[in-house]
Simulated assay, not measured.
Amino acid sequence: MITSLDHVVVLVNDIEAAAAAYQTLFARAPSWRNAGDGAARTLFTLDNATLELMAPDGESDAAKRIRTLLAEQGEGLASLCFRTDDIARLHRRLDRLALKPEAIAEVESRDDVSGATLSWKRTRTATEATRGVRMFFLELAKPRPLSVRIVPASITAMDHVVVSTADPERAAALYGARLGLDMALDRSHPEWGRLMFFRCGDLIVEVTSRPGKADETRPDRLRGICWRVLDIDATHARLAAAGVDVSEVRVGRKPGTRVMTVKSGTCGVPTLLVQPAPKLATVE
């Protein structure tokens, strides 16, 4: 019933500064700008997922709640939003699985630049039922517009989002059995801990648990994002020239991949870039 990870939300203090930082990182223009319900939003829609920047706007109760979250947690990843093609059916499933979904709401957004509108149906689950990670679920009426590439060596897509857990068994039950995501990998390593990959459309929800004894009652948390690039050397050169603090390019853990870490300009989101392994040609 869940078809993809539609978007992730990043809370920020200054929407304009955050939008400029991510435009530099992605080398793509914002695809949507909107303000309402106590928040200013800027969206970047890549080939397979959207990043939504959200900042408090005004003095409403909703804006005050966002400011409280920022004061408590700082800037960074705030929530996951999964897409479905049948929100009513998914709502019934979430309810049966005791994830306490809110009533389905119909939402419309108008882009402040173009005047275009988007509409969707949405619900959210109780955060305590999803181990501390805020989760939303939506059914879009039509696809979002893509962010336009403005210079070469842009970011193309999301590769994976990382969730950290102190209780891997319960996390596996949540993402696999209850949300219905396909577990593609479950591996343990004495240095890394336990690593689980759950397929979600064209990307992975990666759930990690560090080795050693941990407080299993501690809430899970959103830990970071990895983005795909076509040419990591060109992307490295572009970001370094723009003044972004980046690591050297290195060999990734997955055979054939090359990665680098982005150390600034991500609004508190730990960020990795990856050039995927080349696909082998098939012989017919």
Rank of each mutant, 00 (worst) to 15 (best):
T282A: 13
G115L: 08
P101T: 05
Q73N: 15
A172R: 13
V205Q: 03
L118M: 14
Q275W: 03
R218G: 05
A129D: 12
L185D: 09
T271Q: 01
I104D: 05
R218L: 12
E75W: 04
P190I: 10
E128G: 05
T84E: 04
S79H: 04
I15L: 09
G193S: 11
V151N: 14
T266W: 00
D86E: 11
H236G: 06
A241N: 12
I15T: 07
S31V: 00
L77R: 00
M158Q: 10
D220C: 07
H160C: 04
T261M: 04
C200S: 14
V205M: 03
G176K: 06
L230F: 09
P278I: 09
R228T: 07
G58F: 05
A214M: 12
I204N: 02
A214D: 11
I87C: 00
E75C: 09
D14Q: 08
E108D: 13
A35Q: 12
P145A: 13
G115R: 08
V8E: 07
A157Y: 08
A242R: 12
A240S: 15
R199A: 08
D111T: 00
G265I: 00
R187W: 11
V9G: 02
F198Q: 02
L181E: 02
L181Y: 02
N34W: 11
D186Q: 10
K100C: 07
A116C: 04
R93C: 06
Q73W: 11
H91W: 08
E216N: 09
R250N: 08
C200Y: 03
A35F: 05
A116Y: 05
G74H: 10
L179A: 04
I232Y: 06
S114K: 10
T127C: 08
S79P: 01
A105V: 11
E72G: 10
S60M: 06
A153H: 13
M158H: 11
A214R: 13
R170A: 13
D47W: 07
G224Q: 04
F26D: 11
R187H: 15
R41K: 13
P211K: 12
L80N: 03
M183Q: 15
L203N: 06
G268H: 07
R28F: 02
R187V: 14
E106R: 11
G74Y: 06
R253Y: 12
V113E: 14
N48Y: 06
V133S: 00
A277T: 14
